[in-house]
Design a protein around this nucleic acid. Structure first.
Length: 916
RNA sequence: GCGGGGGUGCCCGAGUCGGUCAAAGGGGCACGGUUGAGGGCCGUGUGGCGCAGGCCUACGCGAGUUCGAACCUCGUCCCCCGCACCA
């Protein structure tokens, strides 16, 4: 393959150069209709693999298609380099972490001298953004690189500052508190991908219910505060040494581990001695309902979980039930009715699961079961004052509300978490965190309106968006570490990377103009005028040190391209980025600048398995291009699945695509045929097939169905030309017209091959040629039926030969007689048997007519050719049929010779066959 | 748990306002042709049965509506994805 590929590489380079020289992908505002699409920019922390390749090929195909349709198309690209992942990568490379080094050196093929610089995170994104750019260029993307920027480009950062001041002035950013998973060593919140362990951990919110024990407070942390009415006693672990901790003026008794946790959760904690668990005994008073209960020892109490002191609700908590039975004969206090269980649900479950000891692991399942059942179906018992008859979930809220004044919350991770740096993670409440107020109902309403007017592809994704818009809560939009832009009014914070990339599509429209402007001079006046038309343009121009004319030109360019027609992204960004984009557009811009459409992609598989860079389960785009050439890679990625479906990179399929592409090129290039040939039916058929392909391909591409488009534009055409050349001697002028259209049809998918073929055929540049338009005059759907007759004959004869295993000497075809055609026409019109029998011609064949009518449904009949036409079609094809079956054919319009009595089986479009 | 999407032939995957569906297309496999018994290319076949284009069985499972269901209704089982402070 390699020699051919070096040939195709040459062709690719030639066209990349031509496109660049002629600047055909660098559009400016004009009188033409515009089409503006963007795709989520990449975070270049590694090499591009074929999954990324698909993400960016889809918009390129659409861009190319629209461009050929005559639109002025803008398809820009930039680099998202803000955030913290590269910091971790740089650190790990510095620490010579083997896995990381292996990934970057062996998989991503980073040269060792470059690796040396990777201890600086900026070097990583710099290196890979340039790799990305080169891959994108080589894959033939029609990107306007004149608008390229990084999210840390100073001009872009000025744009972010403007945006955040704007949002704040609109009251959409404020300070708040929020519990997060946190790494004390990194001093930063940790997300799933930052964790070595505990990715599935969620933050549980416990309610603290206090019990007075002398001067001390026993703070029981519970997920089920409504069960406070059923408390019979307290549990402390006799083997644990507890800490007396001063918390907000009270002295709490908690485990040592809990002290640390409380500190991270904003409690002012100081230690005031210790006390042994075994020393904590006697009675205590619940501060919620003032009941007095005893304190009892229990080994199941885990000092590492929550506060280390536990309130006991034996009727509804299996752990408590089992422990209580072991040490005391206190009566349980049932407080919740739940169908399917008796008065004491915990006892039911414990007995059913045959749990004997408080250290039995099955207690976890038992607890889970009870929790779920009572939460969903439980009702508070009648006798509980103020709560009787309430649903458990409502009672829980009410208890929390009643506690509110001196209520405390305690956060605990549902499982242990470990930061990538190796430190045990904690739950921390961030105090002065800044939030984007996505919970704001008025804002959500605007977003819903925005989405209501948008085209969502695929349509079923709309429900997902609706769900996410409702679900989104305030979003912490600032971080302590990472690359990024500082919050303009509080510079100890950086703007979080998803939050700095919500309306950057607007920035593309003007980025090429402001590259030369001193970033310090890009102030809010500038952006207010350019994007919103607000303020005094003279002073805005002056402060930015540009002319008013230039400022107006910039504003005009924004107005020309905006709103954006389509935003494309993989489906993992639906719940955040794509929603954020709608939130921020609806907040900052007037309605007529809100985005008009979203296309969501599926993910990529490799030989049926999920692609994963970290596991090395990827094919690098550069390798794929080297093996198969850019066009074949594009063609495969676009034909394997529709954009929103998951695609599967399978090497043998890619190879087969590569072969088919070569067939296409070879066929088009070698298409000659005889000139000045009279037009035969089969020629009309081929022309019609092309018109059909044009119609269907265009229709599919309008809906972004690249796979379906290629089915028509490529695979069907391949089969059609193969049939055509098998079927007849090619007609030169018909073939010429056909290949010309075919190249145009394919140009968005395989631009390099098509440019080359186009040029060889005397064209200039196919990327800017017109896309074929369906021509009704050249279309002739009826001809398909005629050709299907021939195909049907071949197939029927083959199946007879298959069964009989005979070698034919002579094949007789009997056409259906005139009366059968008349009958079919009438059935097709929907006439019933009574009406049909009124026809004297048909009445003569009454019995047969009845049989046929009974088993023939109108829907099955497409076109009924006349006897003459059918005869003409078959005799026109007889030369071909004789060649195919290497025997002679006789076509009968009457059963003059019919030794086997086959002729009577003939129906229209299905002649009877007799093989000798 | 909540939300979304699915279960089609050896595999991937079209097809769902019911009928032209034994079910497109591709892959794999088999046979035949070309040929240097390879590769490539071309043709044919690939649920079962059948020495005539047919018949039977089939679209997760069960039931229903209908002259007729892969497609509609109900029930049931199973699978995949997302659920946040972050790319």
């Amino acid at each position: 393959m390699s020699k051919q590929n070096s040939e195709s590489k040459k062709i690719e380079d030639k066209w990349i150069k031509k496109w660049r020289e002629e600047k055909i992908f660098e559009p400016s505002p004009s009188s033409k209709k515009k089409f503006y699409l963007t795709v989520a920019f990449p975070y270049p922390s590694g090499a591009m693999h074929v999954g990324h390749g698909r993400t960016y090929t889809v918009p390129d195909v659409i861009a190319r298609f629209k461009r050929m349709q005559g639109y002025n198309v803008l398809f820009p690209m930039a680099w998202h380099v803000t955030g913290s992942p590269v910091l971790g990568i740089a650190k790990r490379i510095e620490k010579k972490d083997e896995k990381t080094i292996k990934l970057y050196r062996d998989l991503y093929k980073v040269p060792s001298d470059v690796m040396g610089r990777f201890t600086d995170p900026k070097e990583i994104v710099r290196h890979f953004s340039s790799e990305y750019k080169s891959d994108m260029t080589n894959l033939g993307f029609s990107i306007d690189w004149s608008r390229e920027f990084l999210t840390i480009t100073p001009q872009y950062q000025r744009f972010i500052l403007w945006q955040y001041r704007k949002l704040r002035s609109l009251g959409l950013v404020n300070k708040g508190q929020h519990p997060v998973r946190f790494c004390p060593s990194c001093d930063n919140p940790v997300g799933d991908h930052d964790l070595l362990q505990g990715e599935a951990a969620t933050i549980n919110e416990f309610t603290i219910i206090k019990f007075r024990f002398g001067d001390l407070i026993l703070p029981a942390a519970t997920l089920r505060p409504e069960t406070v009415f059923g408390v019979t006693n307290m549990w402390v672990n006799p083997d644990v040494e507890y800490v007396k901790a001063k918390v907000n003026g009270e002295i709490w008794v908690v485990s040592r581990q809990a002290v640390e946790k409380l500190r991270f959760q904003n409690k002012d904690v100081s230690e005031a001695g210790t006390i042994k668990g075994s020393e904590i005994k006697g009675d205590c008073v619940c501060l919620f309902d003032k009941r007095e209960v005893p304190i009892l020892p229990a080994k199941f109490v885990n000092p590492d979980y929550a506060t280390g002191v536990v309130m006991s609700v034996p009727a509804h908590a299996p752990y408590d039930y089992v422990a209580l039975k072991e040490v005391s004969d206190l009566e349980v206090i049932p407080i919740i009715d739940v169908s399917g269980y008796g008065d004491v649900p915990a006892r039911d479950v414990v007995e059913r699961m045959n749990i004997k000891s408080q250290t039995d692991k099955k207690l976890e399942d038992a607890t889970e079961e009870i929790y779920r059942a009572e939460h969903s179906k439980g009702v508070m018992k009648k006798g509980i004052e103020g709560y009787g008859g309430m649903r458990v979930s409502d009672a829980r809220k009410k208890v929390i509300d009643e506690l509110a004044e001196n209520g405390d919350l305690f956060y605990e991770s549902s499982e242990a978490i470990m930061c990538r740096c190796g430190t045990k993670g904690v739950i921390k409440i961030l105090n002065d965190q800044w939030f984007l107020r996505y919970s704001d109902e008025k804002w959500k309403e605007k977003v819903r309106e925005c989405m209501g007017n948008m085209q969502i592809v695929p349509p079923e994704m709309r429900q997902n968006f609706e769900y996410f818009i409702g679900w989104l809560d305030d979003w912490a939009c600032t971080r302590k570490i990472g690359l990024g832009t500082r919050l303009p009014w509080d510079d100890k914070w950086l703007i979080e990377p998803l939050s700095d990339s919500t309306i950057y599509m607007a920035f593309y429209t003007i980025s090429r103009h402001i590259k030369e402007i001193d970033p310090q001079k890009l102030d809010d006046d500038f952006f207010e005028y350019v994007f919103l038309g607000k303020g005094d343009k003279k002073s805005a121009a002056k402060s930015s040190a540009i002319t008013v004319k230039k400022l107006d030109e910039i504003r005009a360019e924004f107005l020309y391209w905006y709103p954006m027609d389509f935003r494309l992204s993989a489906k993992d960004l639906v719940g955040n980025h794509l929603c954020f984009m709608m939130f921020h557009h609806s907040a900052v811009f007037p309605k007529d600048k809100w985005p008009k459409g979203i296309i969501v992609f599926g993910i990529g598989l490799l030989e049926g398995n999920k692609m994963s860079s970290s596991k090395g389960n990827v094919v690098l785009l550069s390798d794929a291009m080297e093996n198969y050439g850019s066009d074949a890679v594009r063609l495969f990625l676009m034909s394997n699945a529709e954009p929103w479906q998951d695609f599967d990179w399978r090497d043998n399929l890619v190879k087969s695509t590569w072969k088919k592409l070569k067939q296409f090129s070879d066929f088009v290039e070698g298409a000659g045929g005889t000139k000045d040939m009279p037009l035969r039916d089969i020629d009309i058929w081929l022309s019609n097939r092309m018109q059909n392909a044009i119609l269907k391909t265009t229709d599919a591409l309008e809906k972004f169905q690249t796979r379906k488009a290629l089915q028509h534009a490529f695979f069907e055409m391949l089969n059609d030309v193969s049939w055509y050349t098998r079927r007849c001697k090619p007609n030169g002028s018909v073939l010429g017209e056909f290949t010309k259209n075919w190249v145009l049809l394919m140009a968005p998918f395989t631009p390099f091959a098509c440019e080359e073929l186009w040029e060889k055929a005397g064209g200039k540049m196919v990327s800017v040629a017109g896309y074929p338009v369906f021509d009704e005059k050249k279309s002739n759907p009826g001809i398909d039926a005629a050709e299907d007759l021939v195909k049907g004959m071949v197939s029927d004869i083959n199946s007879i030969l298959e069964v009989t295993r005979a070698k034919p000497n002579k094949i007789h075809l009997y056409l259906a007689e005139g009366w059968k055609r008349e009958l079919f026409s009438q059935i097709k019109e929907g006439k019933n048997i009574g009406e049909i029998m009124k026809n004297p011609l048909l009445k003569r064949y009454g019995n047969e007519v009845a049989k046929i009518v009974q088993k023939t449904r109108p829907e099955e009949i497409h076109a009924v050719q006349s006897l003459g036409d059918e005869q003409k079609t078959l005799s026109g094809a007889s030369e071909f049929l004789e060649k195919e079956f290497a025997c002679s054919f006789v076509i009968h319009t009457t059963a003059d010779y019919d030794p086997a009595g086959k002729a009577r089986h003939a129906v229209p479009a299905r002649p009877a066959i007799y093989i000798e």
